Amino acid sequence: MRVFDTERQEWGGSRRERLFHTDQYLDVPRQKSVRQQTGIVLAVTGLAFGIWALAWKDEPEPYKDPTATQQESPETASGGTGDEVPADGSPSQDTTFESSATLPEDYESLQDIAGYRVALPKGWERESRSSQYGIDIVDYRSPDGTRRLQVFQVMETSPYSSLQAAQIEAEKLDGYEPVAMEEVPSAVGQAAEHEYRADEIAGEQGGGTRHVIDHRFEATDGERYALVAYGSEADGTEDERELVDTALLWFCPPGTQCDDPVG
């Protein structure tokens, strides 16, 4: 049976309709309370959204140092580096230049047929013989036969242990006199050097005391090599030192690509 609801000004449905639409049949005070609560929720939500929108819109840009943008040079603005040479033509104080190391006068860099690169005086003759280990033993001799640079590969596990074995044989030379035997600094791996004098060395030409610098080192390929300079003691020791140091600076092991040394 349907009845007219004077408060709601409508006809009331059956009990089954009220079970499915309970919110429509709340009394008036409770309906007002629901509307008020709903309004409060909507108002709070709108306020929060407004604050977020304003904050996002007015977010400040990242900080920039004002001194970095004050007087931008024309070169920098157009893509220049800002390191150009000043108007007077002189380079700036912090400009650095890298160039290949300069070979001593009358020296040359060459690629040996054994595969390595080395530097030595021009016009020297090459001789070689087989070795029990690694590459052939190569001797470069000066035209007059008084100076020699020997290159070979060593089998010992370290340059210093290799020199210890070689010293046993060197001590058998007539007039053997040690100058130094020690580990030395190296830009790549371990290195050691044995410097000595002897009155007679097999295969050397010319009389008088001979000066020898035997430098053994680990190269960039992880293998160990020897550079041994022989010369006369009578003309001093600087020529043997230059011979070893220059050969070492330009040495590049077989099967390896090396840039020219930087001076």
Rank of each mutant, 00 (worst) to 15 (best):
G203I: 04
L243D: 00
V188D: 14
P29T: 09
S109Q: 15
S73I: 04
M1Y: 03
S14H: 05
T6Q: 10
F251G: 06
M155Y: 11
V3S: 09
V44K: 04
S100I: 02
Q153F: 06
A119G: 02
L54D: 07
S161C: 05
R148S: 04
D27F: 08
T96I: 13
T6C: 05
R15W: 06
G263Y: 01
K64M: 15
T67R: 09
Q36F: 12
G206D: 04
Q36L: 13
W250P: 00
T237K: 08
Q93L: 14
D239A: 14
S186N: 15
F4Q: 02
S161L: 11
P91R: 07
A166H: 10
M155S: 15
D239P: 00
S33Q: 13
E204W: 05
W52Y: 13
I201E: 01
S92T: 04
E156C: 11
D23C: 06
D259S: 09
E223F: 01
V151D: 14
A68D: 12
G263T: 03
A180H: 09
L47A: 15
E59Y: 12
K32I: 11
T95Y: 08
E125T: 11
Y107W: 12
E10D: 07
A77Q: 14
E204G: 03
V212D: 03
F251H: 14
G255A: 12
C258A: 06
E177Q: 12
R210V: 01
V188W: 12
K32Q: 15
E195L: 12
Q190M: 06
P91K: 09
Q257F: 00
T209Y: 03
R18M: 10
G79V: 10
A229Q: 04
S162K: 09
Q153I: 10
R2Q: 06
D88G: 03
T38H: 10
V41N: 04
P91A: 05
Y230G: 00
D58L: 15
W11P: 02
D260M: 11
E177L: 05
I137F: 13
L110V: 07
R35E: 12
L42M: 14
E98P: 00
E223Y: 06
Y225N: 05
S90G: 00
E169N: 14
L248R: 15
A247E: 08
G222N: 09
P261C: 10
T45H: 04
P62A: 15
P143T: 05
F217T: 01
P159N: 14
E171T: 01
A119C: 03
L149A: 05
K172S: 06
P185M: 04
Y107M: 01
G231L: 05
I51F: 12
L227G: 00
D259P: 00
E200Y: 04
G46E: 08
A219E: 13
T220S: 15
S131W: 14
Q111V: 00
Q153P: 00
G208W: 02
F4K: 01
W11V: 00
